[in-house]
Design a protein around this nucleic acid. Structure first.
Length: 1018
RNA sequence: GGGCGCGUAGCUCAGCGGGAGAGCACUUCCUUGAUAUGGAAGGGGUCACAGGUUGGAUCCCUGUCGCGCCCA
């Protein structure tokens, strides 16, 4: 079987040393986990970042403005995706000819860090939570938070750098940096000055025990027994006497049409009825301002026909209820019998009376009915009591109906019915001093007082108890309440000064249209959110943040707007950080001498962190002093050549893209970005989200340790990041395989190029067709790769280049040319032309891949150039001469390669039958029916192309038993074994009659080579 | 429950009204001078499912299911 058994030394000398075999130190296996850190050290040593800046100074800027990750904890695979994608963008833009400067940043303020500090530094040590009314304690706590954020910023920076991300890691931005805090304060002052910042109120989760507001994440749901009540709201005003909606509802339920008398009767009945609500928080009744219904629910009017004489719900009582719930309600109300009178549409009811009306002064107002998405007919009555002071849904319904409330003359104010200690205020008439929850977290006397009054008013029809899941403070484990609190808002719909009566919402919607969204559906997504969002709540009653650094005139709502005071505040923040706001005597320091600090309230609320991050453009892209590398950005829309991109996960349509848009539109009238690119989320191999409990988490640190960062980078580039990405052991395995294939092809080029002298470079016009074909392919790929990088379509780069490297290079061009490259004499034009072309290919492939395989391409660059201080990343994509394009040649070679497939197919049959092994053992006869096809094949060395020792072309269809394939009609192949003897050097069969007498066991070509080599070494 | 997306070979992705494709993986064979490499041939898909539009649908429309993000 084997031509060269190990025990046949008679074959003569070993010719391997006389061949130009590939020679390289570039290892076949990357050893990336070890190699990559060395390359990182090199980048640092040669100051790659500095060199990138100096070589690209003056070019158009491409600014990928970093969305700041939160500085707590190690990075996860989602961070890795985000940063690698950013790095591919940054590096490719640089190689496309831009000055692409990436300045990373961090989000540092906020709740999660506060909790962590409270837990680690206080609770676990048994220390009480610091008293934030004490300036010293406040500042000490803030400094602990700062230290924590600083620590994690450092950890994450190392992890990001390890991914191969290039950027100004020595000078990142941070929302907690003093200049940043100063600028954030200046930005909120701008909203004060333009009139959009106002103080309103909103219900928040409140712990009476701890006297603090809680975030959703600080709340846990536990079983709790609540008082429940069914309360009647007497109908007060009907929309129209015609009762159109209700009559339509009756027709729908098959009750037929009404005549005029019938309508009058209907009108009278409903006027005498009550809408019934059910609630688990009786204490919120004094704060009730509306009733919510759902237009998806069927309602009817019901009459009590049988009940005990002392029952709360009397015989003859008329109640409006959801049909699905009526019998449950009457059962709870101990009604023995009832009848359904007719279908009702609640839209016909304009307002009810408050059930406590007449029990105390202050409940005379109309209680309107509104449609609410949160209303269901699963439990209760189908109507939901709505107290905007005490519930999120309640608040939202109330706020989204402001226009109608104003039109109807209803007071839109949201009452402060309960104070911080859980006591009713005077805004709950008749109940002041009663308590909802006491200091110990126990139920107070409020519910009982309300229930007694409702009963006295005749509007209580049932009561009970319910055990259900209810929010409790994560810390004290005591129940919490929703409580109206003063908050600061940015108005969405108020006209801005210096605009044509445009609101922040108008400007933001316009800015969305002017921005390029990729993928395009991002525009829809953010547009819908901006169009529908309520006013922006920017205040938090917290410690670790930038304060809403304004003063409010005592006894009024007026915010002090004074340039001198503002400058003083910003100046202090710049020097000392925002701690200055909380220091003892701050009001005096900032207000005096112009104002008397006793006349002003210093606002100690801090800004929501989304406002912080919404300001990153202001304190990074516009701060030439601290970020000189970004100085002087001139955006295309301003007549310049620079572009600003934001790139984050698709969740940031509601997050950072959104807050940055609003912040920038409110202060600058336009978006802070020109292009917004979004990516999906990382899921496991089955497309499910990762979680520790499921055990499907892939940690980037593990992948890097086992396989290297370039594998992760290849995964990011090859995946469709506009959708969700999947990762897991099997997926990683296939990318590792792909990587090996690419690496080895690079390695072979490096090994071959070891024998290439620039002085032997062959001119384009002297090259064989096969070389010119490869150069043509480079022209095609050049435009494809540039186009793909310009459109951020990296998977296309990977698909095109890996197909090129495997199919065109490895399996075809390199395979064909090995004979010349290894065996030809040094002077061979074919050999020199092939090396010239391989050099051109290598230059391009190694730069085209560099933005993705940042480490490997650098390693290859070093192996090729031996450079001690340069880098592949300092190159731009090499220009590819247009004269290399030759579509005619490409078409011709498609014919040749198609014919080649028939030959290799025929040889495969011979191989299976053990008649040949290597293709060099064959010299087939190829029959070509078509004259022009045959002429094409005759014009090249088709034997060389097929890697056979000989090949004969014949006209005609060929014999019956010749090999043929439907894909190439008219071509057939008769396999013939190569005749002659096998060349001991090239392994090709040759006719010994032509052997060189001096080198009889090698072919004449090899003899020439040996002679030349001998002469050279002499 | 609502909004925005996605569902094509084992994996990653093309295609997008008229032949279901590529690279990797897999199987078999060859090479042993890219050698823990290289070459060749081959197998593998009811294009999530169900309706509809069309002379014709993976592609257009509607619905269902599954998955994700954002809300509720």
């Amino acid at each position: 079987m084997n031509d060269k058994p190990a025990d046949s030394p008679a074959k003569g000398p070993d010719y391997a040393p006389t061949l130009y075999l590939p020679v390289t130190d570039f290892p076949m296996r990357g050893g990336l986990p070890q190699k990559e850190p060395e390359i990182l050290a090199r980048w640092k040593a040669i100051d790659l970042y500095g060199k990138l800046r100096s070589t690209s100074a003056g070019r158009p800027k491409f600014v990928l403005h970093d969305g700041p990750p939160y500085a707590n904890g190690n990075i996860h695979i989602g961070h890795a995706l985000n940063k690698i994608l950013k790095d591919i963008v940054t590096r490719s833009q640089q190689m496309l000819g831009k000055d692409s400067n990436y300045v990373p940043g961090w989000d540092c303020h906020g709740l999660p860090i506060e909790w962590k500090i409270e837990e680690d530094n206080y609770r676990s040590k048994g220390k009480p939570k610091p008293d934030f009314t004490n300036p010293a304690a406040m500042i000490a706590f803030r400094q602990e938070c700062r230290a924590y954020a600083t620590h994690w910023l450092g950890v994450q920076r190392e992890e990001f750098v390890r991914l191969g991300v290039t950027g100004d890691w020595a000078n990142p931005y941070a929302t907690m940096a003093f200049p940043a805090e100063a600028q954030i304060a200046r930005e909120i002052m701008k909203f004060a000055a333009n009139g959009l910042l106002y103080r309103g109120s909103k219900p928040v989760m409140w712990s009476v025990v701890e006297k603090t507001a809680l975030a959703e994440a600080e709340v846990e749901y536990e079983d709790h027994v609540s008082d429940t009540i069914w309360t009647a709201f007497p109908v007060r005003t009907l929309r129209e006497r015609s009762m159109d909606s209700t009559r339509a509802a009756m027709e729908k339920s098959g009750e037929g049409a009404l005549d005029i008398e019938g309508v009058d009767e209907l009108f009278a009945e409903i006027n005498a009825a009550s809408v019934v609500i059910w609630t688990t928080t009786p204490w919120t009744i004094p704060a009730n301002r509306a009733i919510s219904y759902s237009r998806k629910i069927a309602y009817s009017l019901y009459r009590v026909t049988e009940a005990a004489a002392d029952n709360w719900a009397k015989v003859g009582g008329l109640y409006i209820l959801a049909d699905r719930l009526a019998s449950d309600v009457f059962k709870s109300a101990r009604v023995e019998n009832f009848e359904r009178v007719r279908a009702i549409d609640p839209r016909d009811i304009l307002a009810c009376s408050h059930p406590l009306n007449h029990r105390a002064a202050g409940y005379e107002f109309d209680v309107p009915l509104f449609d609410g998405d949160h209303v269901t007919d699963d439990t209760g009555t189908g109507f939901v009591h709505t107290a905007p002071s005490h519930g999120r849904d309640d608040f939202d319904v109330w706020m989204s109906n402001q226009r109608e409330l104003i039109a109807r003359g209803i007071d839109t104010n949201i009452p402060y019915t309960v104070d911080a200690d859980g006591y009713y205020t005077a805004e709950a008439p008749g109940f002041a001093g009663k308590r909802v929850i006491d200091d110990k977290g126990k139920k107070g006397d409020a519910n009982d007082a309300v229930i007694a009054e409702l009963l006295a008013a005749g509007n209580l029809i049932a009561r009970g108890k319910l055990k259900h899941q209810y929010p409790h403070s994560w810390r004290s484990k005591k129940p919490v309440i929703f409580r109206n609190t003063p908050q600061w808002f940015i108005a969405m719909d108020k006209p801005l000064p210096q605009t044509r009566n445009e609101s922040l919402r108008d400007l933001a919607l316009k800015a969305i249209k002017e921005t390029r969204w990729a993928p395009a559906f991002g525009e829809n997504r953010i547009n819908g959110m901006i169009a529908n969002r309520p006013d922006w709540v920017v205040s938090r009653q917290r410690a670790w943040g930038v304060p809403i650094a304004v003063f409010v005139k005592k006894g009024g709502h007026e915010i002090l707007i004074d340039e001198i005071v503002n400058a003083r505040i910003a100046q202090a923040f710049e020097q000392e950080g925002a701690d200055a706001w909380f220091a003892d005597g701050a009001a005096q320091r900032f207000l005096a001498p112009e104002y008397d600090p006793d006349d002003y309230e210093k606002i100690d609320d801090v800004l929501d962190v989304w406002f912080d991050s919404g300001c990153t453009h202001a304190f990074t892209l516009e701060d030439d002093e601290h970020f000189p590398g970004l100085a002087g950005i001139q955006r295309v829309r301003d007549g310049g050549a620079d572009e600003i991109m934001y790139l984050e996960g698709s969740d940031q349509h509601r997050g950072w893209f959104h807050s940055s848009l609003l912040e920038s539109c409110g202060t600058r009238g336009r978006a802070p970005y020109d292009v917004v690119l979004t990516h999906g989320f990382v899921l496991d191999e089955k497309g499910q989200k990762m979680s520790k409990s499921v055990g499907n988490v892939v940690a980037p640190q593990t992948v890097i340790k086992d396989s290297g960062a370039d594998i992760l980078r290849l995964w990011v580039a090859a995946s469709d990041y506009s959708d969700d990405l999947r990762i897991g052991p099997e997926i990683l395995k296939t990318f590792i395989e792909t990587y090996r294939k690419l690496r080895n092809t690079m390695r072979w080029m490096l090994g071959s190029l070891a024998h290439f002298n620039a002085s032997e470079r062959v001119a384009f016009n002297d090259m064989p067709e096969l070389e010119r074909l490869m150069l043509h392919r480079l022209v095609e790929l050049d435009s494809l790769v540039r186009e793909a990088y310009l459109t951020f379509d990296y998977k296309r780069v990977i698909a095109a280049l890996s197909a090129f490297m495997t199919s065109d290079l490895s399996a075809f061009y390199f395979d064909v040319r090995k004979d010349s490259l290894y065996c030809d004499p040094p002077s061979s034009l074919v050999r020199q032309a092939a090396l010239t072309v391989i050099d051109e290919i290598f230059q391009r492939v190694s730069t085209w891949f560099a933005p993705i395989l940042a480490f490997t391409c650098e390693e290859a660059f070093i192996a090729r150039t031996g450079s001690a201080d340069s880098s592949v990343h300092l190159q731009t994509f090499p220009a590819t001469p247009a004269e290399w394009r030759n579509d005619e040649l490409a078409a011709k070679w498609r014919v040749i390669r198609n014919a080649r497939r028939i030959v290799t197919g025929a040889l495969e049959i011979e191989r299976a039958s053990k008649r040949i092994g290597s293709s060099l053992e064959a010299a087939p006869v190829v029959y070509v029916a078509d004259d022009s096809t045959r002429a094409i094949l005759a014009s090249v060395d088709f034997s060389e192309v097929c890697i056979t020792s000989g090949l004969t072309l014949e006209a005609g269809e060929g014999p019956e038993d010749a090999f043929r394939d439907a894909e190439a009609p008219g071509i057939s192949v008769a396999p013939v074994r190569a005749s002659g003897v096998k060349c001991a050097r090239s392994w090709r069969y040759f006719d010994p009659a032509f052997a060189d007498p001096e080198f009889p066991e090698v072919s004449p070509r090899d003899a020439r080579a040996l002679r030349e080599l001998k002469a050279k070494s002499a």
